[in-house]
Computed example of a mutant assay.
Amino acid sequence: MAVLKFRIYLEEDDAVYRDVMIKHTQSFKELHNGILKAFEFDNKHGATFFRSNDNWQRGREITLEKYNKPYQAEPLLMDKTTIGSEIRDTNQKFIYVYDFAKNWTFLIELIHVSKEENSKITYPATVRVEGIGPQQYGTKSLLGNKFMDIEEKYDLQNGTEGFGLEGEDVATNDSED
């Protein structure tokens, strides 16, 4: 049974990517869930894949469900479409769009095909993580919530250009000696 390795890039930053391995008989819905897990996103929004060419042009749509929008061709459904059925060449590309309000876009490229599956791996599996992934809701620093607490406690947003008025003699008059 063939195992496919896809490299999934964040569209805005190709230094941020995840490599995900999946069996060719698994569905696009399983790949969708694997991508969300790899980038630590929740599963609360709509999503769609597009078969793509080398120029990243959107082709046939493979969607989570049929959405209320016009389609050029009837979309395939993720849970009924196997990944192997949509592979046209050895470096097949897909575009994945998640959460249509935020429009998270990922570029997916087939980078390796293996004939043997590993019985110790549950597919889909994230096998490589490169770069710090985006935060699905808002921004979060490397310090996470701790930095937010510090920021609120010391009101770091108040000063202009990073400086406050502390320690400056604004209203004192020292010439009365």
Rank of each mutant, 00 (worst) to 15 (best):
W104I: 06
T105Q: 15
F106I: 04
L107D: 13
I108A: 00
I108N: 04
I108V: 15
E109K: 07
E109D: 03
L110G: 00
L110E: 00
L110D: 00
L110I: 01
H112R: 14
H112Q: 14
H112G: 08
V113D: 02
V113C: 06
S114P: 00
S114W: 01
K115G: 14
E116P: 01
E117L: 04
E117D: 14
E117P: 05
N118T: 03
S119V: 12
S119K: 12
S119G: 05
K120E: 15
K120A: 14
K120M: 12
K120L: 13
I121M: 13
I121L: 13
T122Q: 13
T122I: 15
P124F: 07
P124Y: 05
P124K: 09
A125S: 10
A125L: 00
A125N: 05
T126K: 11
T126V: 15
V127R: 06
V127P: 08
R128H: 11
V129L: 08
V129G: 02
V129S: 12
V129P: 01
E130N: 15
E130A: 13
G131I: 10
G131P: 09
I132K: 14
G133C: 13
G133P: 11
G133N: 11
P134H: 02
P134Q: 02
P134K: 03
Q135N: 10
Q135I: 03
Q136H: 03
Q136K: 07
Q136T: 02
Y137A: 00
G138F: 02
G138Q: 01
G138L: 04
G138P: 03
T139W: 13
T139S: 12
T139N: 11
T139H: 10
K140G: 06
K140I: 14
K140N: 12
S141K: 00
S141R: 02
S141G: 12
S141P: 03
L142R: 08
L142D: 09
L143S: 13
G144C: 13
G144K: 09
G144Y: 10
K146P: 00
F147E: 08
D149Q: 12
D149W: 05
I150Q: 09
I150W: 11
I150C: 06
I150T: 11
E151G: 00
E152C: 04
E152D: 13
E152V: 10
K153L: 10
K153M: 08
K153R: 12
K153H: 02
K153Q: 12
Y154P: 03
D155S: 14
D155M: 13
L156S: 02
L156A: 01
Q157K: 14
Q157I: 13
N158L: 04
N158P: 00
N158I: 06
G159T: 06
G159D: 01
G159C: 03
T160V: 11
E161D: 15
G162W: 04
G162A: 08
F163G: 01
F163H: 09
F163W: 07
G164I: 07
G164E: 10
G164H: 07
L165C: 08
E166V: 01
E166K: 10
E166A: 04
G167A: 09
